[in-house]
Amino acid sequence: MRELSLNILDIAQNSISAQAKNITILVRASGGELTITIEDDGKGMSEEFLSKVMDPFTTTRTTRKVGMGLPLFKEAAESSGGSMKITSELGVGTVVTASFQIDHIDRMPLGDLAGTMTILIMAKPEIDFVLEYAVEDRSYKFDTKEIKSILDGVPIESSEIITYLEGLINDNITQVNGGAVI
């Protein structure tokens, strides 16, 4: 993985596989620390599965017995002076949180977060996605529920809408960044 947005995309794909109806992605840069949270209301994990979920040889995939998504995200966090934790409850959902030291030399850039959001929307348009993006005291909230209510039945995954949404998210992220690149 070359940017944290790809980790976010990857972890959120697990939420989609877990039949989540709502997936919330929180990105907050404050006081020198970057925190990324991916929260879903999917089927959750049993304590037993949760205890071995960081093992690369634990996976839900069917083609291979290797699952690298969470270990890679953890590695990305720990190599930049941060940490990752995961909590989950069967039938309730899963929360993955990772923290990073923003100015650590080995921290990957956040990258194309807008592209990650639109790819997730195209993967499962019926899921409601929320992105909350905050830098210090400035913040932006993107919510597909709000978009869908404006669209009034026009499919959110249509290419015209996706192009527009990517621009919308990018513009707002740039504004929240206030000149910084995270």
Binding site: V154, E160, L168
Partner: peptide, 16 residues
């Protein structure tokens, strides 16, 4: 800067 108001216009265009 894109705003949600633009989305209304795109929706109307697409509905047609």
């Amino acid at each position: 800067m894109k705003t949600l108001a633009e989305l209304n216009a795109i929706r109307e265009k697409m509905k047609n």
